[in-house]
Amino acid sequence: LFNKGPIDAPFTIIPPNAPVSCCFKFTPNQGMLAPGESQTIQISFHATLLGSLYEEFQFSAGSPGPAILIIKGFVEGSSLHFNIKEIDFGDVSFGIPCTRSCRLTNTSSMSLRFKLRIPDDGSGPTVSAYDQIRDNTDPSWRNGIQFHAEPKEFTMTPSQGTILPQAYQDIEVTLCSNTVMEYYRYILVDVEGVGEGVVALTVMGRCHVPKLTPFPFILWYDECRLKEPHERKFLIKNSTPYIGCYGLLPQKRKADTPVFYSSPKPCGLVQPFSVAEIPVIIEVQAVGDHSTNVV
C-alpha cells in the first residue's frame, strides 16, 4: 500500500459483507503512512467454502475514495481416493503378521498432507509369534498373553506423509491379530487443512487359533544310563489351514526331580497341514522306573 499524497494518511481495511470475508486476515489491518511511504501487507486465507472466489476489499485512507483490492481465485477440495474398495485379509492365524497393499492417489492440483488411522484399533503392543518363539521362558507361554491395554493390531506404512499433485502413495497395511474374532474396521484419512475422515477404506478379516496334536502321547526311552543325555523325538501335527505356534515350557526342577528334560528346539511354527519334529533330551537322576509330563 503506497501513499502518493503530500500528507500523512491513516489507513484501515473495510471488509465486504460477504460471508467469505471472514476467511481473510490482513496484517497489519490498519496504520499510518507518511508521504511517499509504503506498507507491505500480508494476507492469510483459510477457505471454508469450495468454488470460485471474487472479493473486493476497500482501504480507507482519508482520500476522497477508498483504495480497492480485488482478490480472486478458485477453492478446490481435496481429491484423494484408494485404488481398491476394501482390504480383505481373509482367514489369518493368531500372532502371524499378514500384509496387504493399497494405493492412495491425489488427483487434485495441490499437495495434500495426510494421516491414516483406524478408530477402533487399540493402543497397546501386540505379540508376534515370530517374537514369541525366540524365548520359551516368556511368561505368555504359561499364563497367556496379558494386555494392559487393547493391542494395536493394525500397522500402516507409511501412516502419514505428503502426496504431491497428480501423484500417489503406496501403503502397506499389516494385521497381527491377538484376538480371536472377525474384523470389520475402517481406515480413515485425515487431510491437513481440509478435514478428518475425508476418505475411508474398509478392512476385514478373521482370526483363528489352530488345534495342534502331539504324537505319540507317550515317549518311551527304555533303559537309560544315569545322568547321561538320551534323545527321542515326537511330532506335532497341524491338520488346519492356519499356521500354528508351539512352545515346550522349561521344566521346573527340584532337588528330588527324578528326570530332567529339555529340548534344543523348544519353540517353533507348524505350517498348515504339516508336522513338526521336536527332539526331547532327558537325563535320569535316580535309578528306577520314572515318568514325567512334558508341557
Rank of each mutant, 00 (worst) to 15 (best):
I236D: 04
S262K: 01
Q271G: 02
T257R: 05
G205A: 03
I243W: 07
V199Y: 00
K211Y: 10
R225H: 14
P264D: 02
K233R: 15
S274L: 01
G244C: 09
C245Y: 09
C224Q: 14
E231H: 02
G244K: 06
T213P: 00
P272V: 03
P250R: 07
P229S: 09
T240S: 15
Y261R: 02
E277S: 11
L212T: 03
E223P: 01
S239C: 07
L219Y: 01
S262N: 14
P214H: 11
C267G: 02
H230S: 12
Y246P: 06
G247H: 01
C245R: 05
C245L: 05
I278P: 05
V198Q: 05
Y221S: 05
C245N: 06
P241F: 04
P216V: 08
F260A: 14
W220C: 07
P216R: 00
P229D: 14
G268I: 06
V270F: 02
V270A: 08
C224Y: 04
V259T: 05
N238F: 01
P229N: 06
L212W: 02
K233S: 13
T202C: 04
V209H: 05
D256Q: 06
V198C: 13
P258T: 06
V275A: 07
R206I: 11
E228T: 10
H230D: 14
I236G: 10
T213M: 11
Q251F: 03
L269A: 00
Y242I: 12
S274Q: 06
M204L: 13
S274T: 14
L269Y: 05
K227P: 01
T240N: 11
C267N: 10
G244N: 09
P272N: 03
E223S: 11
I278W: 00
C207V: 13
L248N: 03
T257H: 03
L249T: 08
G247Y: 01
F215L: 12
L269V: 12
H208L: 08
Y242A: 09
P216K: 00
E231T: 15
E223M: 07
V259A: 03
V275L: 06
D256S: 12
Q251C: 02
E277D: 09
H230E: 15
P264Y: 10
H230R: 04
L212I: 14
A255M: 13
M204A: 07
L269H: 15
E223N: 10
L219H: 03
Y221C: 07
D222H: 11
L226P: 04
T202N: 06
Y261K: 00
R232Q: 15
D256R: 05
N238A: 07
I243C: 05
L249A: 05
D256A: 10
Y261S: 14
K233M: 12
K265Q: 15
Q251N: 12
C267M: 01
K254Y: 12
P258K: 11
K233C: 13
T213G: 02
D256H: 12
R253C: 08
D222G: 04
A255W: 02
L249Q: 12
